[in-house]
Design a protein around this nucleic acid. Structure first.
Length: 464
RNA sequence: GUCCCCAUCGUCUAGGGGCCUAGGACAUCACCCUUUCACGGUGAAGACACGGGUUCGAAUCCCGUUGGGGACGCCA
């Protein structure tokens, strides 16, 4: 049997981090089994669905590297098919028309809650004669759900979960305007698309009982369900669009790498022994439902940063240089990109994301005169520096060999003859050449900058 | 209110009756490396929510309590 999974977001906002993880798990599961991964946009809520959201979701998935198979399914386009299924159920006596007003329903729920009962529709139109139908009221169509016994779901993550049918009411299948509800649409689409495994957020677990009833009512075989625990924010509450969740594009803008985000998201709720750094290929090979944990997890930027740093250090220098140039608005500066590429080995171990990397790289391609941080200024204006620097600069002006090792030798010899530590020479150099007190090894910086630029910067230095 | 799910270091987790004086990773702290900051290396501190069972033996199984989360729409 070919495994068929799907990611089915509703386009009411960006692709948030929880959705991204759900997509990742479905993608991984399909790839692991050499199966199919579908994308279905659940746009049946015509009021809240937007084109912009659809675009954001598609862009997000592409950026994350989670490609889907075949065409995208748009759920709203399938509404006629959904309605057709409801009609079948109606004819088979498995569904019925209900003429309750919203006010009646509201009262029902309030009364049930007050009486300590589950808040559900009481089924008053279930067996009522259709002739009683009030004139001018468009009915909804409800499922004639079983009233006794229990509905059981065997979940890939949660195990066997059961609920008494008396807890569940006759859900609405078709709204009074003739459009299908979510509960019905998902079931019909999953069935028609041949979905074999549904992997989704835990918040759908209780919905699954209702969906199960629809499958049973239609005599369809239900897919295998797996409900993954939700990702919580630092405060422990569900991470949602309204509660601190960020879209994947926000992570992109913060400078995180797709590969790092995939690795991080994979480890959030899924484990394979003590493994932490897991390549995407390795993830595809290892991913199994049994590795999914049952308890919710919290999003932790510190760990994401660590992972991102790891993957940045492994990234290709030229690619990083391009990304940095892009962020610095110098994407078309070929010379700058070449210089940044050479500088990248010293730069990339000093940043945990592309944003930082760009900030730390800026001094290399910064036009003179350089801006100086307060600390850099302070170093350049100490009496010791003021006394030392002119002589050091003069020494370098006469240097022929501009290789880092040679430059360092020169500085060491200079420091020794002046009776100071190497740092006394290196730190002012750093301040003058980078405008900062923190940078890659300063002699490496000098070499990469080249003698002309380095000397010019040294002469610019605001000594004293 | 009703139902469902969950519960190991601050965080992510390993663990599925004896291998656990509970392992790893991130974060934290110390030391080493060192021209700064990182990277890297070494080490430290740090957890089985609580109470009952079951068992020769429980982090692991059962029940309860507490705590957290989720669902109860003509939203998805």
């Amino acid at each position: 049997m070919t495994v068929v999974t799907r990611f089915a977001p509703s386009p009411t906002g960006f692709l948030h981090i929880g959705g991204a993880r759900t997509a990742l798990f479905n993608w991984l599961y399909a790839r692991h089994h050499k199966g199919i991964f579908h994308l279905r946009i659940e746009d049946t809520d015509r009021v809240r669905s937007t084109e912009a959201a659809i675009e954001a979701i598609i862009d997000g998935l592409k950026w994350l590297g989670l490609g889907w198979d075949g065409e995208i399914t748009y759920q709203f386009a399938r509404a006629p098919r959904h309605a057709e299924v409801v009609l079948q159920m109606l004819e088979a006596g498995k569904a019925y028309r209900c003429y309750c007003s919203p006010e009646e329903l509201d009262e029902m729920r309030k009364a049930a809650q007050a009486a300590g009962k589950p808040m559900k529709y009481d089924g008053r139109w279930r067996d009522r004669d259709p002739k009683d139908a009030p004139a001018g009221v468009k009915p909804v169509i409800r499922l004639k759900a079983p009233q006794v016994g229990e509905t059981i779901v065997v979940d890939g993550v949660q195990g066997e979960v059961r609920v008494a049918n008396e807890q569940l009411d006759d859900m609405v299948l078709l709204r009074s305007d003739g459009t299908p509800t979510y509960m019905l649409s998902v079931v019909v689409d999953d069935h028609d698309m041949g979905i074999t495994h549904v992997i989704r957020g835990d918040d759908h677990l209780t919905n699954t009982f209702r969906q199960r009833q629809i499958y049973d009512s239609m005599g369809w075989e239900a897919p295998h369900f797996s409900h993954i625990p939700l990702i919580h924010g630092p405060d422990g509450a569900k991470l949602s669009k309204r509660h601190g969740a960020l879209g994947v594009e926000a992570y992109r803008d913060m400078g995180y790498l797709p590969v790092a985000l995939r690795n991080y998201l994979l480890r959030l709720g899924w484990g394979h022994g003590d493994d932490e750094i897991i390549s995407t290929e390795q993830a595809i090979e290892w991913f199994e439902l049994s590795g999914i944990g049952r308890s919710p997890s919290r999003f932790d930027f510190a760990k994401l940063d660590n992972l991102n740093g790891h993957y940045m250090r492994q990234s290709d220098d030229a690619e990083l240089a391009k990304a940095v140039a892009d962020r610095l608005g110098k994407a078309s500066d070929a010379g700058g990109i070449a210089l940044l590429t050479r500088a990248m080995p010293g730069l990339k171990s000093r940043a945990k994301n592309l944003k930082e990397l760009a900030e730390n790289s800026a001094f290399y391609v910064q036009a003179r005169p350089l801006p100086f941080t307060d600390k850099a200024k302070a170093i350049l204006t100490t009496p010791e520096t003021v006394g030392l620097m002119p002589k050091l600069i003069d020494t370098y002006a006469r240097a022929d060999n501009w290789q880092a090792a040679s430059l360092e030798e020169t500085a060491r010899a200079f420091a020794e003859s002046a009776g100071v530590k190497l740092g006394a020479a290196a730190q002012p150099l750093r301040a003058a050449l980078t405008g900062s007190t923190q940078s890659p090894p300063i002699f490496e910086v000098m070499e990469i900058l080249g003698k002309d630029e380095a000397m010019a910067r040294l002469k610019d230095a605001p000594l004293g």
